[in-house]
């Protein structure tokens, strides 16, 4: 209740007093995005089902969930490109349905699918995008040099986008979103199509942007990405928020320290399930393996073997957000 009252109070305050030009950077920690009862329906289908959340300035905030969970719909509402059916939301103190362009002036958007202008060169894509924000030609020219280096596309500056590989297009899309030095950088599945090295370097770049005060909004279905990048995240499923906390907090609340994965063969996992259930806090029987939850899985594995059960393979690992999701929804993220 206190939390709800605080959010409402913050919403009213921010609506009436948008970011002052005298303090353009704002205050780290103040709420930049506040949503209450946010709902989006497409006919009979409810994509976002009355969710509440807030995102603070300088925070890296994640939306985690499977395809169709409502993450991208929520992102589009925040990006002021999709109207809500009901509920309230303010971004930078403004209602996106009333002051969409003013909000979008301070957002950098990396969509799930690249929408670069394929008839233009790499350099021209960055240039025209900068012009959409009213940036001066001189500023954009200097910025292009930085962004081409950032995206490792210096050699491709004069190449038409249609000739780039998928990974290069992704890097260019991310670079393009940074041309206006946005207050909020929104990344919808940002590392899809990137190789592991480029992925890690992008994570590093995002950390640095965060250090400079940029607020990051990320949707992902990659567990490691969510754990690496997000200070706080909400787990979404079927348009609803299942849980909200830091990655570590979610794991602590909804899972054990460790997980033991054992495989007995597809037709035998069910046979052992009942016996295994009595040996640990919780188990999940998946089609190809059984997950056993305990704070000491090495001992648990020893006990399993000593009881005469010989798994064909076994793995002890620390709990991840995948386990949290499984616990909350009964399904895996990749189903």
């Amino acid at each position: 209740m206190m939390s709800t009252l605080w959010r409402m109070s913050a919403m009213e305050k921010s609506e009436s007093s948008p970011a002052s030009p005298a303090s353009p950077a704002g205050t780290i920690g103040e709420p930049l995005i506040i949503a209450k009862g946010l709902r989006k329906e497409y006919g009979e289908f409810t994509a976002v089902d009355g969710i509440d959340f807030h995102v603070n300035r300088g925070e890296s905030f994640g939306f985690l969930g499977p395809n169709g969970a409502g993450k991208s719909t929520t992102m589009r509402i925040i990006a002021a490109t999709l109207t809500r059916t009901s509920g309230e939301i303010t971004i930078l103190g403004k209602d996106p349905e009333k002051r969409g362009p003013e909000i979008r002036a301070h957002l950098g958007v990396v969509p799930q699918q690249d929408n670069l202008d394929s008839s233009l060169t790499v350099e021209d894509n960055l240039y025209v995008y900068g012009r959409y924000f009213g940036l001066t030609k001189k500023f954009i020219r200097a910025k292009i040099e930085e962004l081409l280096t950032f995206a490792q596309l210096e050699e491709k500056r004069g190449v038409k986008v249609e000739a780039l590989s998928g990974g290069m297009k992704r890097r260019l899309t991310i670079a393009r979103a940074l041309v206006s030095e946005p207050e909020i950088l929104m990344l919808d599945e940002p590392t899809t199509g990137l190789d592991p090295q480029a992925r890690h370097i992008l994570w590093d770049r995002l950390f640095r942007l965060k250090e400079q005060g940029v607020t990051l909004l990320i949707t992902t279905h990659y567990m490691d990405e969510a754990e690496q990048l997000c200070d706080r995240l909400i787990v979404m499923d079927k348009g609803r928020i299942m849980a909200e906390d830091s990655p570590a907090g979610l794991i602590k609340t909804y899972s054990t320290k460790e997980v033991l994965e054992v495989r007995f063969g597809a037709d035998r996992n069910d046979l052992y399930a009942e016996k295994l259930r009595s040996m640990c806090d919780r188990i999940e029987v998946l089609p190809d393996r059984v997950l056993m939850y305990s704070d000491d899985c090495e001992t648990l594995l020893h006990n399993v073997v000593s009881q005469g059960m010989q798994p064909t393979t076994s793995l002890v690992r620390r709990s991840s957000l995948e386990d949290v999701f499984l616990r909350l929804t009964g399904r895996t993220l990749v189903e």
Partner: peptide, 16 residues
């Protein structure tokens, strides 16, 4: 991607 330093002023200052 490389880690070239990007000087940052922020859109609130940059954009008219």
């Amino acid at each position: 991607m490389s880690d070239t330093k990007i000087a940052r002023r922020g859109s609130l200052q940059l954009i008219n």
